[in-house]
Structures are given as structure tokens and as C-alpha cells.
Design a protein around this nucleic acid. Structure first.
Lengths: 203, 203
DNA sequence: AATATTTTTGGACAATGTCCAAATAAAAAT
DNA sequence: ATTTTTATTTGGACATTGTCCAAAAATATT
């Protein structure tokens, strides 16, 4: 394992534990048995370090969210669940989401580029579900996409505030459930069967 | 105007502008034409200062969210809109919500006390709407309350990230719209008339 | 007018992220 | 094998942050 990777791993671990803003460079260096300036050799600023973590999360999510023909509700929820799992792995980033975008120059630049892609990706998936007659033709896709985006971005913040006693698995279940119920009024009979099947297959 | 109040006012103004974490005590003091230690005389720590702002927001919201007999959809949405306006006035607090709860000892203590009150208040309002035959009897109130809580807490974070070009008025409209659409499948015919009437009366 | 209380001040403190010249280790070239 | 070049690591410095405190100044009370 390279020095760079060991720094990233330990940083993610400690950031997740205590929050990005509350882990000092000296503390991180001490945990790694190295000197602070050794970290800054690989990551000149703390923002660089955080930015690399954010790139890693983006890549992980990109592997999951792939455009596919004939998207099913199960596929869709599976993807969502995997994204939720990635969010837990990188939870420090999502808990500091707003601050990072306000102040981390790299992240805010990169985010602006991927933001539209991501939300149009969601919209296209919903359209695909509609074309497969899984969503009713009069379903308000913009509403669903907006609400979905809000949940995806902030579920983990909400969970850390309101459901911290729940296990990670239970938290994921809770917010997947909310998504399922969000879709419920808008799925066709066929879609509803898939939705219910997905729900029963897990819980 | 007392010194204490002038500190709170200026702090809120600058915190909203730049973010709580990015306004230093010296910067704040300079804007007030006073010395740092003069601020710490009234607010020994920055957390004390932030906590007082958070108390002020809580009080403002408590004045709005009052339990009333015969709650109507209009009343409910009016309350929500007023809460949204308060959130804009104190937006710095909501943008730092997670951090404050993680690290500000006062706020996290106080929040735990009011958290359950608030969410049961939401639930009771929904029950009241149901008793007034504005919500269908089979509406999933827990789902509505959960989703509502998520929107109320994080709409302004989402707006700052995704809709920063919109005016404050447009942002409020957008998220009120989401709430309206969230309720749409669960309102009775009578409730729907109210919902539509509310929507048309504004926009 | 003297005393007590409240408010304001300047300067200190430790901790933070960042930076840099020098030391060391490793690799490449001779 | 020895020298030169490059990559990595180190200790110490810097400005900035929130916090603290003894003394000064202003105000209130006796």
C-alpha cells in the first residue's frame, strides 16, 4: 500500500468518525506515524485531501449508476441501495456537503459539472420506467426527481440527527422505504407488483 | 439598542452572508467597531453566540406553529411558508445544522428536547387534517411526517446547492410546491379543492 | 465624593492549516 | 562502485483561529 493510499484510508476513517472539520492534520499524522509535512507533500492542503476522497466517491457511484435498457423498479432500487451504501462509506463528505461546496474550490467546481448530469440521469431513469409502463403516464417526474435528489443528498444528515440509534442497515431500510412510498401513488399495477416484491424480498 | 442585541444582529447578518464557520470573532468585532474581548464579555464562546441565535429562531417558529382546532390545509401551508421565511432569516443555522448538532453542546442538548415535540406536532397536525376529512383515511401519516421533516430541515441546504440562482421567493415557492405535490395523492376531494385553491391564490 | 459594579480593552495562550529549507532515502546515470 | 539526480521525509516557522484574563475605563450606587 502506497503512502498516499494509506493517508486517504486513515483520513476517511477518522473523518467519518469525528467529522472532517474536527480532525486536525497533526492528529491524522500521528495516527499514521508520520509528520504533518509528509501529508502535505502528497496533499498540499486539507482541501486537496478531501477533494480526492470526493473523487473516489464519485467514481464509486458512477460504477453503480449506469444507464441501462429496460430499467426495472428492482434495478432502480438496487442502484439506490448501493448508492446509499457508498454514502455510508463516505459519510463525512455528505455530512459536510454544504460546507464543502461553499469553501472547497475543487469540489464546488467539479460538482457543478456533475450536478446536471446526475439530475438528468435520474430524470432519464424515471422516463425509462415510464416507457416500460411501470410508472403511470401522468406521473409528475420533475416532482419525483426533485424529491429523490433531496432524499439522496440529505438522508444521511437526517439520519445522523434523528435516527442515530438505528443501525446503518436500518437507516438504509428506512429511507428506501420512504422512496418506495414516494413512488407508490405513481406506479402502475405492474409497477406496484415489482415495488411490493422488492420490499418483501428484503424485509 | 443594547450592545448584546447589536452583536446578535451583526453576527446573524455576517453568518448568513459567509457561513458561521467562516466569520472570525475579530472580523465580527471589527464590523461592530469593538474589540473581540468585548464580544466574549456577552458571549464567552462563539457557541454561546450561535446558540442564542438558535434560541431566537426556535422562539420565532414556536409563535408560528400553534396547535389549533379545525386545522385547514391553508392554515397548514401558511404555517409552513412562515417557517420557511424564518429559515431564510436564520439560514446560517440551517446550513450548518449537522455541524451544530455534532459540536455545539448547548444546541444539541436543546434540540433533543424539542425534536420529539416538533415531530409529534407535525403528526398531530396531519391527524387533525385527517379528522377534518381533508386527508384520506388510509394516508400514511408516518411517511408524510418523515418526508416533511426531511424537507423542512434541508430544503435550504438543497436550495443553496442546486437553486442558488433562484430568488428567495422562488425557492420558497419551489419547495412549497414539492410539499403540495407530496400531499396530492393523499388528500380527499375536499382537501384537493383547498390545496388547489391555495396554490392558485399565490401563483 | 467615595465606593462598587458593569463594561471595555490590550495582550497573551494553545491549536489550527500551511509553508519551506534542509536532511534523508531511493533511483538513475556515469 | 561512485556520483548525480530525483523522490520522500523532517523539523521548525508563519499567520490565523477561538478563548482567556488582569487591568483600565465607564457607569451606577452609596
Amino acid at each position: 500500500m502506497t503512502t498516499k493510499k494509506s493517508i486517504l484510508d486513515k483520513a476517511l476513517e477518522m473523518f467519518n468518525e469525528k467529522g472532517i472539520e474536527y480532525v486536525g492534520m497533526r492528529e491524522l499524522a500521528a495516527s499514521l506515524n508520520m509528520r504533518v509535512s509528509n501529508i502535505t507533500y502528497y496533499f498540499p492542503t486539507k482541501d486537496d485531501l478531501v477533494n480526492q476522497l470526493s473523487i473516489n466517491l464519485s467514481q464509486l457511484n458512477s460504477e453503480i449508476v449506469v444507464v441501462q435498457e429496460e430499467l426495472t423498479i428492482s434495478n432502480f432500487l438496487d442502484m439506490l441501495e448501493k448508492v446509499f451504501r457508498n454514502h455510508i462509506k463516505f459519510r463525512c463528505l455528505l455530512l459536510s456537503f454544504v460546507h464543502l461546496l461553499q469553501r472547497n474550490h475543487f469540489i464546488s467546481l467539479r460538482y457543478k459539472n456533475t450536478e446536471k448530469d446526475r439530475s438528468t440521469a435520474i430524470l432519464r431513469m424515471l422516463q425509462s420506467l415510464m416507457e416500460s409502463t411501470l410508472l403511470k403516464t401522468d406521473a409528475d417526474l420533475d416532482f419525483l426527481a426533485s424529491t429523490l435528489a433531496l432524499i439522496i443528498r440529505f438522508w444521511i444528515s437526517e439520519a445522523s440527527v434523528s435516527h442515530s440509534k438505528l443501525s446503518e442497515q436500518e437507516q438504509i431500510k428506512h429511507y428506501l422505504n420512504i422512496v418506495i412510498k414516494l413512488f407508490l401513488p405513481y406506479v402502475t399495477a405492474k409497477g406496484k407488483r415489482e415495488l411490493v416484491a422488492y420490499y418483501k424480498s428484503r424485509y
